[in-house]
Each structure stands twice: as C-alpha cells, then as structure tokens.
Write a protein that binds this DNA or RNA. Structure first.
Lengths: 136, 136
DNA sequence: CTTAGGGTGCAACTCGATTGCAAAGTTTAC
DNA sequence: GTAAACTTTGCAATCGAGTTGCACCCTAAG
C-alpha cells in the first residue's frame, strides 16, 4: 500500500507538513471534501495554505476537483493510475439531504456522442438525490 | 408556436414586464446564459430583479439552471413539456475556449446505475472541451 | 555562513450570489 | 371606488467561496 509520502513522490510534489496532513486527511474520507470541510476537520487552519496545497495537488494529479453544484468545489484523491483524462472519469453523486458528495467509481460513464467537431477534454458528471443513508 | 405569455401562463407565472423581457431574451439564445450575460444583454439592469426573476422561473420549471464549472450558474429555457425530472435531463457542453455552455438535447443520457438505496432526483452532466467553433 | 527560491501565514480583496427594506404596482374584499 | 393585503421591483448592503499580495520562514545549494 502506498503511503502519503510515496504518493507525493510519485506525483513529484515536494513533501511538506501541510501537504502530508491534508493528503492524509483526504485519503481517510469516503466523500469528497470541500476546502471548508478540510479547514474544519484539521485543527490547523489557514484557508489559503490549504487552498494552495489543493491547487498544487490538483495540478499534479494527486487529487481531482468536483463541481457538485453545492456551490463549493469538492476534492477527492485520484485513484491509483488516474491521469484525470476523460477515460478516467466517474460519476459523482451529491446527496441533497446530507450535502455529501460520493465518487461512484463502479459506475461506468458511457461514451458521449458529441456534435461534429466538438472535442471532449474532461467532464463533470454529477447525479443528485438522496444517498443510501438519507433515503429512508 | 408558443409566445412568451403562453409559456408563463402554462407554467402559472404571473406575467410582468421584467419576466417577459428576460424570457424573451432567453428564448433567443442558443447558449445557456449567466446572470451577468443577461444583465449585459438587456439595457435594463438590475441584477437582483433579474436574479429573482430567474429564481421564479426555475421554481416554476420555466428554465433550468446549469452548473458548468465556469463559476457562474447558467440558465436555459426548458424544452416544451419538460418537468426537469431525471428523464428530461440532457448533457451540457462547456467550451473552455469561448466560455459558452450548450444544451445537447440530442444526446441521450443513459440510465445511471446507482448504488443500492440511492435515489436520483436530478443530475448535472457537463462535458468540457472545445466547441465546433473553437476546435479549429 | 550566505543566498536563492519555494512554501507558509495573515490580511485584504474580488466577485457572484443573496437579502433587507421601502417604494411601486396589483389584487381582493367590502 | 377605496382601502387593505399581497406581490414585485429597485437599490444598497451583505455574504461567502475563492484568490492574491506580501512579508516571513525554512531548506537546499554554493
């Protein structure tokens, strides 16, 4: 199993205290986290440092960001081997009740037939509704 | 063909000057419009009135909103008979070059196999890339 | 040790979204 | 027709996520 430092090394991101803490936290989550979630979860709090850490991670494909329509960008660790290319996409599910966003790795995204000449670069597929926990 | 007032009547939204102007404008567009787009396009400008008009339209299923990841919510007129239910969904395509959002009415959205107990209410499917015009 | 450069903390700012409130317009009851 | 009740509108102010400027710090190279 990869350690946090392994991941950073592989993705060529210098390991620092904040980065380790943030990545460790993200790895523990089953749901995508917003900047605020992270800020609240870690006793350490400096928005901008966490923000820049997330940007760095994103640029280096350590994590990917999700616009789930909640108004806050959420972040989740990329699966091993993910290049954040269209082929690596997966659906996200946003629960309108508990305000959590899940990565649905197991649900394949079909090829989208785009109009002529359109070029797909990436996609943001978010289904909304009630998660298993809230749908009772 | 439906007039603006017909649409408002069908959707049970009282017709007012602003509403007529905003809806007329939206009907003329081939791309989804942001609040700012509308503000700029109409000589008349009061952000909050347009904003509230859009909210009213959305609540009454006259238009639907799209989070295309550009940071601004975009709005487009619902197709006739649309109830904004999962069955009425369509993909959106956001062009990263010209910053425009298109509704891809012709591309069907396959049924998404959600995890057990999850309940789909709506979805926001945005593909990003280059539109036919920018991909040259 | 000294310097260069990236990383960090703090504070300030941007900008889309949203709200409070009073004025204007509309509808309803009498 | 008129007054009361409600809705819509315009303006100004606020909110909050995201972002940036800048000074300080820490590390690695010379």
């Amino acid at each position: 199993m990869q350690t946090v430092d392994d991941i950073l090394k592989i993705k060529k991101v210098k390991s620092t205290a904040i980065r380790t803490v943030v990545l460790t936290h993200l790895l523990k989550q089953e749901k995508a986290q917003s900047l605020k979630d992270i800020e609240n979860a870690l006793i350490y709090t400096d928005r901008s440092s966490i923000f820049r850490t997330l940007k760095t991670f994103e640029e280096n494909k350590v994590i990917h960001s999700i616009e789930d329509g909640s108004g806050m960008t959420k972040y989740a660790v990329c699966a091993e081997g993910c290049n954040c290319a269209p082929e690596d996409l997966h659906y996200h599910f946003y629960c309108t009740s508990c305000d959590k966003t899940f990565c649905l790795f197991d649900v394949p995204i079909p090829k989208i037939q785009l109009p002529e000449n359109f070029k797909l670069q990436q996609a943001n597929m978010v289904a909304k509704g009630l998660c298993g926990h809230c749908n009772k």
